[in-house]
Write a protein that binds this DNA or RNA. Sequence first.
RNA 1: GCCCCUGUGGCGGAAUUGGUAGACGCGCUGGAUUCAAAAUCCAGUUCCCUUACGGGAGUGGGAGUUCGAUUCUCCCCGGGGGCACCA
Length: 864
Amino acid sequence: MTTERYNPAKAEPKWQEIWNSHNCFAASSDKSAKKYYVLEMFPYPSGRIHMGHVRNYAMGDVIARYKRARGFNVLHPMGWDAFGMPAENAAIERNIHPKKWTYENIAAMRKQLKSMGLSIDWSREFATCDPEYYGQQQALFLDFLEKGLVERRKSVVNWDPVDHTVLANEQVIDGKGWRSGATVEQRELSQWFLKISDYSQELLDALDELTGWPEKVRTMQKNWIGRSEGMQFTFKLEDAEGNPVNSGLTVFTTRHDTIFGASFCAIAADHELTKTAAEHSPQIANFRKECAALGTSEEAIEQAEKKGIPLGIYAIHPFLKDVRLPVYAANFVLMGYGEGAVFGCPAHDQRDLDFANKYGLKVIPVVASKDDPGSTEITDTAYLEKDDAQTVMINSHFLDGMSVPEAKEEVARRFENEGIGERKINFRLRDWGISRQRFWGCPIPVVHCDNCGIVPVNKSELPVKLPDNVTFDKPGNPLERHPDWKKVSCPECGLDATRETDTFDTFVDSSWYFARFCSPEADKPVDTAETDYWLPVDQYIGGIEHAILHLLYSRFFTRCMKATGHLNIKEPFANLFTQGMVIHETFRTKNNEWIIPEEAVQHDGKWQHIKTGEALITGNAEKMSKSKKNVIDPDEIIQRYGADTARWFMLSDSPPERDIEWTEAGAEGAWKFSQKIWRIINDIAEITTNSDNCANDGDSLQLRKICHKTTQAVSEDIESLRYNRAIARIHELANELTSFLKNKDNANRSSEALKEVSQMFCQLIAPMMPHLAEECWQVLGNSTILALQSWPQVSKQLIEEDEITIAVQINGKRRAEMTISKNADKMETEKAALQLEAITSKLEGLNIRKVIVVPGRIVNIVAS
RNA sequence: GCCCCUGUGGCGGAAUUGGUAGACGCGCUGGAUUCAAAAUCCAGUUCCCUUACGGGAGUGGGAGUUCGAUUCUCCCCGGGGGCACCA
């Protein structure tokens, strides 16, 4: 064979150009066709794509190309999550306008993505920093505002002192800013909030119907929403002398069954009662300061001792008028959850027990084990069992003898009858603070007027555009100190007023972009005629790191858009797939300096530095990151091997939801396989023996059968995104083709069969290696574009075998196998099995006690 | 602490409803081709015993259900993730 090697550097740009000029991947406006919307999470334009992008977009592209071939009208768009702080950091560091930086990055990354040969409808591309996009986002906000979905309120916010901005709770990780890593401070500011907590129950309930989502993500969202069912009730209060204190103390609990085990109450340092008490007591005021200084960092909380200070007031037990519970301010009670107040039941709550032991408070066991109700002594470990089958109430007056659930019900009933409490459901989910004191974001379209207060900008004035002439020489928000940008006249009274200088959290931008892709040029946020057709997204693909924030916000936003008449759906993503990361080996020196893997060499089984010879420590394979110096640049890989090889490798071996390790050998293997395909197809193309041999006979028939079976399997695997399996199947078919071709004397070889199989083979690889597939398609004599062909038809006749091979076991161990008619019944199968020589010889001297026959599956002979 | 996922050769990983464990790929070993190499092709490759034929063990460990368990149940161990002074 003199076939030249396949050269992706030549072929890939050529086919990309052909696809482009034939407009192959534009979604059709014909709404009569069945639609399929596949979307990968859009990238942040950092400047260069990384391997994670390659994996993400390759995965989406496979399903897009497959569905297109299956006759679906496919929407597969691309855009840019383009607002955010790196652009501002670049502005500060390099004195370049964030807009310029961002659009330059977009241009660079667009080029890189295009070199991957993705089947994207580029005509729908937009960036969230395009005024045409964020102007519509401002319109949405005004609608939400009108509908009461937005609220402005003063609140203590997480303040990032390095980035000079407010952070959402979700953006605070271990008490530190998710971006800057700086310890977060608490500040009180007026902020805009989206009232996501109004939707807590709804967002929780609807998770059950999201059957196309990974269980894991649904669980994570469930935990995040954090529903807990309990009771809210109010204690009467009195001071040390027994004088009633006017305000009662309202607490929330999920363990009202343990009310007779209560021995104290604890309230937050920020609770009104604590504040009042602090006015008269320097010690309490001090305690409050101490708690504030502690910060919110998890580390601090974890290490902080359970501390409290008595407030000199007492709560009257709701059922025992002579029992007084001392009220403490305590550092472990959070103002942000429930009522910021709890009653302490030390016997059945570890934290309460620690507190009680420290301050010498009573420990009254009220729940005992049913099996052993006598042993109720509690010293250091609280008794937490609450299962109704295991527990019995003790020391609890009218509750004695009940199980925990019974006691809960009884207490709830009495509280309600006496009007001192009610059943209450609490959620952990907080409202979503969306104000950011940043420049490079979507301006919040309101005006502050001394006369009229807060006034929405008129829709006709949208978009409120970001100014171009800004400076970044000082920290803080350039909009704030811009000479005239914020000066406007009030839309209501016309007098001088100022614009809001805060911008939206960038998670707002990404909460509806999927809807905008349906009608990217509409002069309203979305064209409902389009979204009714395209939404929900049929397949959404992205990283698990967005399991909570982005995905929960998008679900909420979709509901808001429904409430304001923009959409008619509640759930944006019918099917979600969370792909694993691309990881790579790491090396570092004894001094913990990271070394790039290319500089590590193995010597006598030990790793050392290629130049210095210094011994190196091999770390785990980890997510590619600059700091760990284990980044592989997709550009380099595409230049060296081509996009098809990069795509193929990203889809091979590892299941898509799992992490995949980048290895040189793996890339090399994918490259070799692409060359192998090229050789096979060229070999086939060169065969000119116009044999009249029948394609329905002998080896040719066999080959066709295998090919059709493979097509069936690959189709199923692609549908369920099990790409690694699809690829294994394609390897098998390639091996079959190789051995078929090798047998030159094959008398039965039919050119008709070869043509059919080789064409189908091209079609099978096309979703993963689209360029090579086109090139092969052409070599086989086709003048059409493969990307526009429909998926090969599987012949039922060819995939159904008359005979099958099944195993024969003796006592559960495989001893033989036999080929038998597919339709053989129990009797026939048993008879055939017992006649096998391998079986009869093994059965000598044994008594057959039973023969299990599962027709079409297995025979198991039980003998002794 | 609570919740979830996961554990299969040297490695990545396959295995409808319980039905031939290790597909496919990488690596390794041997061979062919070559002056040599690259590339390619062929054969072998779970472990142990055996020249072979063959036999035994085997899916983190232990028990159970079953004719039959990687798959189902219980306990334990390892790895990963989520939530977390949440009342």
